[in-house]
Design a binder for these strands. Structure first.
Lengths: 337, 337
DNA sequence: CTGAAAGCGCTTACAG
DNA sequence: CTGAAAGCGCTTACAG
C-alpha cells in the first residue's frame, strides 16, 4: 500500500501546480470546469482526503470541541454526553472527551492537553473536588489561552463564562411541596452526592420549602457505598419520616430498597422522589417519581452555545441559561392531590 | 489579551533563534543549561504551550485515537468507553468519540471525518445495521488510508484487524447449564437486541446447551419498546417455562418486572439470568444474576492493543483476544446446586 | 553551543 | 484560468 496521497502527488500526476489542485478541490470558480473535473476524478481514484492538521494550521480552527466531565457511568452524564455528541455531529463538529474522575488534578491535566490548539472550545461540568475547594486556577489557564468555555450542570459563580443549568433549588422546593400536598408531613432529604453544587442547591430548595411549611428538617448525607439502612428503617418505624426527597437517582433507589426490604410499602409507608430520570427510575418496582433534569437538552444546549460563541454569534456578555425541568410522577408517590 | 504565544515570539524576546528555543524546550542536550533555563522561564511566564497541530504535522502522529460506538446510553458501552478513556489517559493518548446510533451511514460519516490525519487509529464496535447487512465498504476505506483498526464486542469475521471479544456463545451455554443444574427444565431465551452478532452468539450457545440437555427450545425476540408481557405470563401460567436467559440487561429486567407484576415469585416460579452487569442488575429487587461482560476490561484491552499496534509492538498478524467472563450469582436464580 | 534552512500539507493573496 | 510564493507553528538534520 502506498503512502497517503497529498496535493503534491496529485499535482505531479496531473502536471499542474499544487495551488490549482487545492483550488479545484475546493470548487474555486477560478479554475476551469474541465480541470476541476479532472482533479476530482484523480482525487477520488486515489482516495484523497485532505489532511485536517494542515488545514487547521492554516485556518486556525479545528472544528473540534473538548468535553471534560467528571464521569460517564452515572446516567446523567452519559445522557448529557449523548446530547453533546448528537448536536455536534449535526453541526459538523467533532468532540474529544476527557474524564476527570471527580479529581481536580485530572481536570487540570485534561485542560492542559486540550488547550494546545487542537480544540476550538471546551465544555465542562466541574469535578466534585473543584466545586468543594473552589480551586479554579487551572480553569484560568483556559482564559490565558483564549479558549472559550461553557459550563453545564456543575458550575461555579466565580468562573465567568457561558453557563447551562437547571434550577435545582426551585425544583427541589417544588418536589418537597408535592410531597407535602400528597399528604406527607415528615419529609427527609437524603444525599449520596454531597460536595456538589447541585446537591447543595437541592438541599437549599428543600430547606426553603420546609421553612414555608413550618416542618422540621432532617438532612442525611451518606456514602453510596455504605447506605445507612438501619438509620432509615429506624426513622420509618419510629414514624419520624413519611417521605424522602433524594438528591440523586442511586440515593433514591437505595432508600426504596432498604424500606422495601424492611417490609414497608411504597408509597403507603414512605413516599420517595429522586433526581435524574435514568433507567433505574423507570424500571424499578415501584417506579420512581423523579425530577427530570433534561440531561440531553443540557448537553445539546451546551454544544450549541459553544458553537455560537466560537462562530462569534454571541454578544460579549456571557449567557446563563436555566432550563425548565419537570417532575415525572410515577409509582413512588401518592396521587391524592 | 495578546495572541497565542509561539516559538517565534519567544525567540524574538530572547534574541535567539527559533531552533534554539525549540531545542531548549525539548531538553535537547545540545543547548547550554543557562539558555535552557532562560527559555523555559520565559515560556512559563507567557503560558507557552506548543501547538500540537504543528507538532503533529511534523511528526505525523497525533496521539489521539478515534472511537466509534453504536451508543453510549446502554451500560455496556458507557462502561467500555470508561475503560478506553482510563487507559488512554494512562498512556498519554486522547480520544475522539463518535456515536453511530446503530446506523451504517452515520458510521461511514464518522470514519470519513476521522481518517484525515487527526487520529492515529480507530477503535470500533459495529452498528447493528453494519452487522446485519454485512456491508463493510466504509470500513475498507480505513485500510486504504492505512489507519489501524481495533474491533471490540461487535465484530465481523470479514474484517481483518485486531479484535477483542468475549466468548458469548460459550457463556450463554454455561448460563443455560447453570439454570438447568439449579433445577430448571424449561428454559426460554429472550432477546431485545436481535440483529447483533452478540445476540446471535448467545442464542447459539443457548441452543447448543439445550441440544445436549435434550430440552425443547423456546426463542422469543421482541422490541424493547413493547415487551410481550402477556405472552410471557401465558408461558409461565401454562408452565411452559420455568426460567429465562435474556440476551441483555433491559430484557432481563423487563422479564422480571412482568412476572413479578403478574404475581409470580422470582426465582421460585421463574429463574432469570441476564447479560451485562449494569446498575439495574445490581439494584433491582430481586437482584439479577448475570453474565459479566467485563466491559471496562474490553475497553482497556482495545485501547492497549491499539497503542501497541500504532507503536509497532505487534506482529504483522492480527491478534484476536477472547476475554474470560464470569457469571455473577445474585437473587434471581436458585442456589441448590 | 547556536542558527539557517528545509519541510510537514495545506491555503490564499498576488502575478501573469 | 494557472502558478509561484509566503506562511500557519513546529522539528531536525546540517553547518558553523
Amino acid at each position: 500500500m502506498e503512502k497517503k496521497v497529498t496535493l503534491k502527488e496529485l499535482a505531479k500526476q496531473l502536471n499542474v501546480s499544487i495551488s490549482t489542485v487545492s483550488k479545484a478541490l475546493n470548487d474555486s470558480p477560478e479554475i476551469s470546469p474541465q480541470t476541476r473535473k479532472k482533479v476530482k476524478e484523480l482525487a477520488d481514484l486515489n482516495y484523497y482526503v485532505p489532511n485536517v492538521l494542515a488545514q487547521n494550521l492554516k485556518t486556525s480552527h479545528t472544528k473540534t470541541i473538548g468535553v471534560i466531565i467528571p464521569a460517564i457511568l452515572p446516567h446523567f452524564f452519559a445522557e448529557a454526553l449523548h446530547g453533546i455528541e448528537t448536536k455536534a455531529s449535526e453541526l459538523g463538529y467533532r468532540i474529544i472527551i476527557c474524564i476527570s474522575n471527580e479529581s481536580i488534578q485530572k481536570e487540570a491535566e485534561s485542560i492542559k492537553t486540550l488547550i494546545n490548539g487542537q480544540v476550538d472550545g471546551l465544555i465542562m461540568s466541574l469535578s466534585k473536588e473543584t466545586q468543594a475547594k473552589m480551586d479554579i486556577d487551572h480553569i484560568k489557564t483556559l482564559f490565558n489561552h483564549k479558549v472559550p468555555l461553557v459550563l453545564f450542570d456543575r458550575v461555579l459563580d466565580q468562573i465567568s463564562c457561558d453557563k447551562i443549568q437547571i434550577n435545582d433549588s426551585l425544583q427541589a422546593e417544588l418536589a418537597t411541596m408535592e410531597l407535602y400536598n400528597s399528604g406527607c408531613k415528615k419529609i427527609a432529604f437524603f444525599s449520596g452526592i454531597s460536595n456538589t453544587s447541585v446537591s447543595n442547591e437541592r438541599k437549599q430548595g428543600y430547606l426553603a420549602a420546609l421553612k414555608n411549611l413550618d416542618i422540621k428538617e432532617k438532612v442525611i448525607s451518606f456514602d453510596p457505598e455504605k447506605f445507612p439502612e438501619k438509620k432509615l428503617v429506624g426513622l420509618i418505624s419510629r414514624k419520624e419520616i413519611d417521605s424522602v426527597l433524594a438528591s440523586d437517582e442511586l440515593g433514591a433507589i437505595l432508600v426504596m430498597k432498604s424500606a422495601l426490604d424492611a417490609g414497608y410499602k411504597i408509597p403507603k409507608d414512605l413516599s420517595v422522589i429522586g433526581f435524574t430520570n435514568g433507567t433505574m427510575s423507570k424500571h424499578f418496582r415501584p417506579s420512581l417519581s423523579t425530577v427530570d433534569q433534561h440531561a440531553q437538552d443540557q448537553g445539546k444546549l451546551a454544544l450549541e452555545t459553544m458553537v455560537d460563541r466560537i462562530e462569534g454569534k454571541l454578544s460579549e456578555k456571557f449567557s446563563n441559561y436555566t432550563l425548565e425541568t419537570s417532575i415525572i410522577h410515577r409509582d413512588s408517590t401518592r396521587r391524592n392531590f
